[in-house]
Design a protein around this nucleic acid. Structure first.
Length: 644
RNA sequence: GCCAACGUAGCUCAAUCGGCAGAGCAGCGCAUUCGUAAUGCGCAGGUUGUCGGUUCGAGUCCGACCGUUGGCUCCA
């Protein structure tokens, strides 16, 4: 009689089974979750295969596609099927790595010839065949030396490299399905048949281990789901993302362009895009003055020596445009604004009473970005940061950080970003020598950031060792309407530049003290922020941001002068209005205004002229009835002021 | 920068095997004066990204360059 073990299930129930019973047997008996949905299990917090035997008293949880870990397992298994299919079709293909990612999976291969689009179709077909065969995933544990021998035999040089250089465990696990075998920690779904709907999405080059000096492998991206419907839903979502693409909308709505003749990564703001930008900037300026900032302007270029002193030449050189020579002096386009603000600070002696000093600037900077990374407005070579530098005493740091967090929250919610993730980057306590500035100063600063976050009541993830060499930082990632993350506000403490420029204030004691310097940006850059905003709103900007808020549409020429009168009236109220008096039908003008995503259309015909009213049509909703011009003005004014 | 794909009218896209560069929309002109998502007719619009090569003949094949897209890496 075998020993019994006690298993605690998800609903708190405790059951007894003979030692060595497999996870799936228990879960099948339990029956709370449809057995076919269960992909793997969590035992005492560890993820395991359903076939794994239970050897002691433990908790047991089923994992399905609904769980994050379940998805990962599902996609990881899909990656193995991808690899098997590729090796069947391309026997020379060597395996790189094949993990699950946020959405889907990929696998890297070293192949003599890069894959073509047609290859993708063939691979996908072969994957379906493997799925039809319903091959079990079989786990096997072997000593590392044994795994090295096996992988050498199979000429899997990358796997051998992983085993020799990256894996420390002396026992490793292998997973087999059919003739295919892969080095893998697991777990996996029980068999290939669990993967119901699969699609390969793209191929791209990717460096082995992400290192530029290493060989470039071919990365195949794919996605899979337990049902065809879910796959289709995923593809629909991709189309939605495509429809919202700021580059596409930027053209359709005539907001911005990038000119080949002018150079890559340099943005041209067309009148409507510029209108949105000025609205944001005006709002931004007012809000900064209200919160005790002063606004400044600084030059676009400065002597090479300044950038040497600031340290940029040492650690940022590869991101800067090369110098411009004039009168035997080299000048550099600024990649950042901070040295300029420091020079201004140092233009006179500062007292502790002057602090904190908060200087903000919409500063246009230029950075040399490698051609392959440029992307619409999101990744460019010239951009305007909503930059600010706070110079303060150490005892003021916490309040200053809190002030920035408040400002960031206010700005983000105003632009409709209500969800965000906060990250705190701190030193690696194991490698303190990597960082500039002494221990006490670091500790004090990290403490101040933490206390500010706590006061704000924000939860955050602490990222050990992620801080830059010159100070700890808070990064806020904002989630857009589609749940995608965007780089938002960043708050960076800097121990480096105040040191290099000897930035001080005179304290109460009459002595010089080192100033604490904080770099911060709330929107990031106008380019990236507006690019993101276009996608967030899908081009349908709320009335306060819309470049054109109202189009007045006369039905025939007979109402043209009345329409213009309404137009002038709205212009007097500072609304952004156009009168569409072209010789076209109402339907045509409405269609055009809808496509241009104008929030309001005022249709005026004979009836409205007689009554002195306007027929209001709201974007996306349709006719909302007739009202007096005054009533409409009030309505729109309210909407604009509420910024909704 | 690296890997791959792509580049035809302002935009979206055709053009069979290498054989006269085409359509819709936008623009312009004329007609129409119309009630909530496209009125009709006409006109104009091109060094097929650039440069070079192969060929009797190149949008199409080859090479280099420029740019774009998806990735790698990096970042506001």
């Amino acid at each position: 009689m075998a020993d019994l073990i006690r298993i605690t299930l998800l609903d708190g129930r405790e059951v007894e089974y003979p030692k060595g019973t497999m996870a799936w047997e228990v879960l099948k008996d339990w029956g709370k979750v449809p057995f076919g949905d269960i992909l793997a299990a969590r035992v005492d917090g560890r993820l395991v295969d359903l076939s794994s035997p239970l050897m002691e008293d433990t908790s047991l949880e089923p994992l399905t596609f609904e769980d994050l870990e379940g998805k990962e397992i599902y996609w990881h298994s899909s990656a193995h099927i991808l690899a098997q299919a590729v090796q069947q079709l391309f026997p020379k293909a060597k395996l790189g790595i094949g993990p699950a990612i946020r959405e889907g999976f990929y696998y890297d291969f070293d192949v003599p010839e890069p894959f073509s689009e047609e290859d993708l179709g063939r691979i996908e077909e072969r994957m379906r065949e493997i799925i039809r065969q319903d091959l079990p995933f079989i786990r096997e544990e072997v000593p590392r030396s044994e795994a090295i021998r096996l992988m050498s035999e199979r000429k899997e040089r990358y796997k051998v490299e992983l085993l020799e250089e990256d894996i420390e465990e002396e026992t490793v696990s292998l997973y087999r399905q059919g003739e295919f075998v892969d080095l893998c920690r697991g777990p996996h779904v029980p068999s290939t048949g669990y993967i119901k709907a699969v699609k390969l999405l793209s191929v791209a080059g990717a460096y082995w281990k992400g290192e530029e000096r290493k060989p470039m492998l071919q990365r195949v991206y794919g996605i899979s789901f337990p049902s065809q419907e879910e796959l289709e839903e995923f593809l629909r979502r991709r189309e939605e993302i495509e429809r919202r693409d700021h580059r596409r909308l930027g053209r359709q709505l005539d907001l911005f362009s990038i000119q080949e003749e002018g150079g890559p990564g340099l943005v041209y703001w067309h009148p409507k895009g510029a209108r949105i930008r000025t609205i944001i900037e005006d709002f931004w300026r007012r809000e900064h003055y209200r919160r005790g900032y002063e606004l400044v302007y600084t030059p676009h270029i400065a002597k090479v020596e300044l950038w040497e002193r600031s340290g940029h030449m040492a650690w940022f050189k590869e991101s800067m445009f090369p110098p411009i020579e004039v009168e035997d002096q080299g000048y550099l386009l600024k990649p950042m604004n901070c040295p300029f603000h420091i020079l201004m600070y140092k233009s006179k002696t500062r007292s502790y009473r002057d602090l904190p000093i908060r200087w903000a600037e919409l500063g246009t900077v230029y950075r040399y970005e490698r051609s392959g990374v440029l992307q619409g407005m999101l990744r460019v070579r010239g951009f305007t940061q909503d930059d600010a530098h706070i110079f303060c005493r150490p005892d003021q740091l916490e309040d200053e950080i809190l002030g920035v967090l408040d400002l960031a929250e206010f700005m983000l919610t105003t632009f409709g970003y209500t969800d965000y993730e906060v990250e705190l980057s701190v030193r690696d306590p194991e490698a303190k020598e990597r960082y500039i500035g002494d221990d006490a100063v670091w500790e004090q600063a990290e403490e101040a950031l933490i206390r500010a976050l706590e006061q704000k009541g924000w939860s955050y993830s602490r990222r050990e060792g992620e801080a830059k060499f010159y100070g700890p930082a808070i990064d806020i990632k904002m989630l857009d309407a589609l749940g995608r993350g965007w780089q938002g506000p960043t708050i960076q403490v800097d121990f480096n530049e105040p040191e290099r420029f000897d930035v001080t204030y005179i304290g109460e004691d009459g002595q010089e003290h080192r100033v604490v310097m904080v770099h911060r940006t709330v929107l990031g850059s106008m380019e990236r922020f507006v690019g993101g905003l276009i996608e967030h709103y899908g081009g349908a900007f709320p009335a306060w941001l819309a470049p054109i808020q109202v189009v007045v549409i006369p039905i025939t020429d007979a109402q043209a002068s009345y329409a213009h009168k309404i137009g002038r009236r709205l212009l007097e109220e500072d609304f952004r209005v156009e009168v569409d008096d072209r010789n076209e039908r109402v339907g045509y003008k409405i269609r055009e205004a809808e496509l241009q995503k104008v929030p309001y259309m005022l249709v005026v015909g004979e009836r409205e002229v007689t009554e002195g009213t306007v027929s209001v049509r709201k974007r996306g909703e349709g006719d909302i009835g007739r009202m007096s011009p005054e009533e409409f003005v009030d309505r729109l004014q309210e909407e604009v002021e509420a910024r909704v």
